[in-house]
Design a protein around this nucleic acid. Structure first.
Ligand SMILES: [Zn+2]
Ligand SMILES: [Zn+2]
Ligand SMILES: [Zn+2]
Ligand SMILES: [Zn+2]
Lengths: 123, 123
DNA sequence: AAATTTATGCAACTTAGTCGCAAAGGATCT
DNA sequence: AGATCCTTTGCGACTAAGTTGCATAAATTT
């Protein structure tokens, strides 16, 4: 049981159950956003998708987790941090986290998704 | 039958059928991206969704039409033009076209989607 | 006109995510 | 400990956007 995860949940008034711990452990180890399937495969225990999505919704409301849709009609999840952009390559389907300067935009930007060809695929 | 649409298809080696014309007419009149349902509702004739999606796929390959996913798990379509960004409001679900300066990004960016709260909803 | 190719419509299918409900797990009180 | 209450979990049924197979219709070629 991870110390940081315990305090993260405590800070947001979320009771830390086994399922929640499993999800957060995987997200914490990840270096880029993951889908439900990918997260499930990285868990040591099994978990029903209903449980997964309900807890993810809870994390989202609390602002702990951030999600966005890729071009494969799946949601990808990561722990919230600095607001950064995601580049999704249409060719190799790799998702890359990146910093982007938007200049000034009216309203509040919470998520930035760029799609196209990554530098490897763009020849 | 619209003159511009005829030349658009001719330029891309696409045979202009009734279904294709109906789709392109709606997209041409639109001031912002539309979903399948919205496009269907703006047509004068009925069209099967299989026909719609097959032709949209054709337009996409030809580079005539651009699509992206919103936060309602639907695709939104518009005629390709300058590469501009779309702002999707999480609160009022309005989709706004906007110009954005990304600075320099490696690879080729084909689509930019921002999500958050639009200026009206961000109080 | 016949043969071949292409486009359309219908129905069945796929699949990520949702929902209702009953059982399991935890906390609280007596 | 046992009874009661609330929350969480898992199962199965469901939803809905988009896809696919196939038969018919329309256009094109021979
Ligand atoms: Zn790539
Ligand atoms: Zn990221
Ligand atoms: Zn708004
Ligand atoms: Zn636009």
């Amino acid at each position: 049981m991870n110390e940081q995860i315990q305090t993260l949940c405590k800070e947001h008034n979320i009771k830390l159950t086994t399922a929640r711990s499993l999800i957060l452990e995987v997200l914490k180890r990840a270096s880029h956003p993951l889908s439900y399937e990918q997260i499930k495969d990285k868990m040591n225990a099994s978990m029903d998708k209903a449980t997964f999505y309900r807890n993810i919704a809870l994390f989202e409301e609390a602002g702990i987790v951030h999600k966005f849709e890729s071009d494969d009609r799946k949601w990808y999840f990561e722990l919230s941090g600095t607001t950064h952009a995601h580049f999704i390559c249409e060719h190799c389907h790799q998702i890359t986290c990146m910093e982007v300067d938007l200049g000034k935009v009216e309203g509040e930007v919470k998520s930035i998704v760029l799609k196209g060809l990554c530098k490897e695929c763009h020849q």
